[in-house]
């Protein structure tokens, strides 16, 4: 399932994220997201960037943990504002 901005995505590990913004970078799609604690509560300290990948079985996301990439993506997200 493809991610969409201003929607809540539930992952197969049951984690939920509000999709705040999207970005095309280096041929990949990245999403700025914020974690949800429950359907009614969000955790403003849990802001992460997800990278969207696709294979034969559908869309997947990966948490971006590479510091250099995070730095670059943060910069790009900021530029969008």
């Amino acid at each position: 399932m493809k991610l969409e901005v201003n929607k809540i995505a539930r992952l197969n590990n049951d984690e939920k994220y509000i999709i705040l913004n999207e970005l095309d970078y280096d041929g990949n799609k990245y999403y700025l997201t914020m974690g949800l604690i429950s359907d009614n509560e969000y955790d403003s300290s849990k802001v992460i960037i997800l990278k969207e990948t696709k294979d034969g079985n559908g869309y997947y996301v990966e948490k971006v943990i590479d510091k250099d990439l995070l730095y670059e993506l943060t910069k790009q997200f900021k530029e969008q504002l």
Binding site: I8, R10, N12, G58, Y59, V61, E62
Partner: peptide, 11 residues
């Protein structure tokens, strides 16, 4: 490291 999006809902 790879997670599948299983549901997409309105806020």
């Amino acid at each position: 490291s790879k997670l599948r999006v299983v549901e997409l809902t309105e806020i």
